[in-house]
């Protein structure tokens, strides 16, 4: 029953969604829209699950001192800092005790984790209590900060914006930009005219790259642009269409297999 119930649900809802598409009746539309609400709900739960998973994996890594475990502290501190900055904010321009409040709150959360994994729990619990008392005291008696729990005002919190703009964006952009170096190295080694197909690939790649280049003599830029557009619009288009149609048919086949219970990989076991 434990395994059969999900299969029955998948069959009923999967088959319904297929037939619903061809039934333009009001009731059918209503049921369809009702089911769509569930997608949003599942999406929100998936976010919460993702955050919990990140927390759990990081704590486990610290607890068992797995490879590169100190970085998990950075992950957790970053997670808590962004959450605190996202849900709180300064009132006006005065900083007041707001930075101390944020730091003690994050310290409390980190010490709480440390308490659960440490052997000498008394020491960590004491530090945890101290940081909590300080955070609560500041929270109660300092009026330079506010909670933005119900609005998205936290996204405009200067610290949230600074962390996003000056830490997250440069880090992710750096990771992405490293591709340029590896592509150059890979192009040097792989783009060699070993046979006809490799030669065609090499020539096509050079033409597409050359179209970006404004420093070409004798009207070559126009020729390169035309050739490059032809490459994109004809051979590339034909290949992409074949791939898209192939993927589409594959999705239909897989969906049918899931609905009919032939493909059971989503249950975690084959």
């Amino acid at each position: 029953m434990k395994r059969q119930l999900p299969f029955v649900l998948v069959f009923i809802f999967g088959a319904f969604m297929v037939f619903q598409y061809f039934v333009p009746h009001e009731s059918s539309e209503w049921v369809y829209e009702f089911l769509l609400d569930w997608i949003t709900i599942i999406g929100i739960f998936a976010l919460a699950l993702g955050i919990y998973s990140l927390y759990h994996v990081s704590v486990e890594k610290i607890k068992f001192k797995r490879e590169n475990w100190p970085y998990s502290y950075v992950t957790l501190i970053g997670l808590f800092l962004m959450v605190v900055f996202g849900f709180t904010g300064r009132v006006g321009d005065a900083w007041g005790m707001y930075p101390v409040f944020v730091l003690t709150l994050v310290a409390f959360l980190m010490l709480l984790i440390q308490t659960t994994i440490a052997t000498n729990k008394t020491l960590w619990l004491g530090l945890c209590a101290v940081s909590l008392v300080v955070a609560v005291a500041i929270g109660l008696f300092d009026d330079t900060w506010t909670i933005n729990f119900m609005t998205q005002e936290g996204l405009r919190n200067s610290m949230f914006v600074n962390f996003f703009d000056y830490i997250l964006i440069p880090i992710l952009s750096t990771m992405f930009s490293l591709l340029a170096f590896f592509i150059a190295s890979a192009a040097y080694r792989a783009f060699r005219a070993r046979n006809l197909l490799a030669t065609l690939l090499l020539i096509a790649a050079l033409i597409v790259m050359l179209r970006f280049n404004p420093y070409m003599p004798f009207g070559l830029p126009a020729l390169m642009a035309d050739t490059s557009n032809w490459l994109m619009n004809v051979p590339n288009l034909a290949a992409q269409r074949a791939i898209v149609i192939g993927i589409g048919l594959g999705i239909v086949a897989t969906a049918l297999k899931v609905i009919l219970g032939i493909e059971r990989g989503y249950m975690g076991k084959g």
């Binding site: 340029a180 592509i183 150059a184 192009a187 040097y188 080694r189 783009f191 060699r192 005219a193 070993r194 090499l202 790649a205 050079l206 790259m209 050359l210 970006f212 280049n213 404004p214 420093y215």
Partner: peptide, 19 residues
Amino acid sequence: QTLAHIVIMLFIIIGNILY
């Protein structure tokens, strides 16, 4: 981007000379 493309293209040519 343009300058990097020129450099990559020249490296491809160098690679092919060697090949």
